[in-house]
Simulated scan of single mutants.
Amino acid sequence: MSLFKRIKRSLTGSIQTDDYESRVISRNNNKTRSTFDPQILPPEISEREVEILKDCWNTVQQDVAKVGIITFVGLFETHPDVHDAFMSFRAVNTSDLEYNAILRAHALRVMGTVNKCIYRLDNRDKLQELMTEMGIRHKNYSVKIEFIDLMGPQFISSIKASLETVWTDEHEKAWDNLFKVMCYHMRKGMCSI
């Protein structure tokens, strides 16, 4: 069993099925963009969706490290080429405890960004600025622009388990819209330099 599957099993007690993985890969391959087109605007996030996102986030924050790690483990399982894009992971053997600490630290940074975006939904200009700057930083790290759209679906699949008793299509749409907005502005930042 791969390290990623062992990590996921230790965190969740189970491994996602191949059916799930093929849905994520298929979904991502259809939506991944490799450029920024200012003619295509990000979706609007309604006040109801803001309410849903903030309410869900209060629950997700209770296990934020776990959600972050599961998100990245899932991403690395379904898109192994993404793993190699992370400079901090390249020099470390994936069986090392140091690898797990680096993975957890990065996952927590990403979850911190999600947190900032959720609370900046009340000030969209600040959200746009944050994510544009994040895009510029990721371009400087030589991250491929087509990797940006992969995070949202993985994150959504990771939080569903925590929210399965309340999860609806409305929740899915709210989170999908949030990540589309985040990715739009990241791509904008990546294409600005």
Rank of each mutant, 00 (worst) to 15 (best):
S95N: 14
I118W: 01
A107V: 01
T35Y: 06
Q39M: 10
I69N: 11
Q154D: 06
E77G: 07
W175K: 08
E146A: 12
S26F: 00
V110N: 08
A65L: 11
M131Y: 00
D84L: 15
T132R: 11
P38M: 02
I145R: 13
F155T: 02
L53C: 02
K5F: 09
S34W: 10
S2R: 04
T59R: 09
W167T: 03
S46N: 02
D37C: 07
E51C: 12
W57I: 03
S34L: 13
C56E: 07
V82C: 12
N28H: 00
F147Q: 09
I193N: 09
P80Y: 04
W57E: 05
L41H: 07
D37N: 10
K66H: 13
L130P: 05
P153W: 02
E77S: 14
W57V: 03
K54G: 07
C183R: 02
L127R: 01
Y184L: 10
G13D: 12
I102K: 09
R48E: 11
V92K: 13
K180N: 09
M87T: 09
Y99N: 10
L41M: 07
L103H: 07
T78Q: 09
M182E: 10
D19Q: 15
H106N: 06
H79D: 15
S26E: 02
C56T: 07
T59M: 03
S162M: 14
N100W: 02
P43G: 01
N177R: 02
